[in-house]
């Protein structure tokens, strides 16, 4: 297996972007966006996660099996959120007698 090594400059750039995104998250927290506060914060977090996985964890240059493992993890996160939402999103749909 050939090891692909990124240049130090690439890593430094990614690091700078991660720090900038952290600052952005903090800054956005002071702006009242209503329900979109959470959406924006999560969107930034997903972007940072992708940067870390693709560059720092070398997923960009990994084998298909490794990528499958990462996708599996993401898929399981989706299962956790989606099936939990079957509860949280539908709790008020049916009235419970006495409540």
């Amino acid at each position: 297996m050939t090891e692909h090594i990124d240049r130090v400059r690439t890593y430094a750039l990614v690091f700078a972007v991660l720090i900038a995104l952290t600052v952005l998250t903090t800054a956005v927290a002071f702006v009242d966006l209503g329900p979109f506060s959470v959406v924006v914060a999560l969107a930034i977090a997903v972007g940072k996660m992708l940067l870390v996985a693709l560059f720092f964890m070398h997923i960009r240059h990994s084998t298909r099996l490794t990528r499958l493992v990462v996708l599996g993890g993401l898929l399981w996160l989706i299962i956790l959120i989606l099936l939990s939402l079957t509860d949280f999103a539908t709790r008020t749909w049916v009235g419970v007698p006495g409540r």
Partner: peptide, 22 residues
């Protein structure tokens, strides 16, 4: 095995729809 956990929550305040799904 990962798609069924809500059956432990049938008598909690879990939504009835979630109960049906699980």
């Amino acid at each position: 095995g990962f798609l069924v956990w809500g059956h432990h929550l049938f008598v909690s305040t879990q939504s009835l729809y979630a109960g049906l799904v699980f």
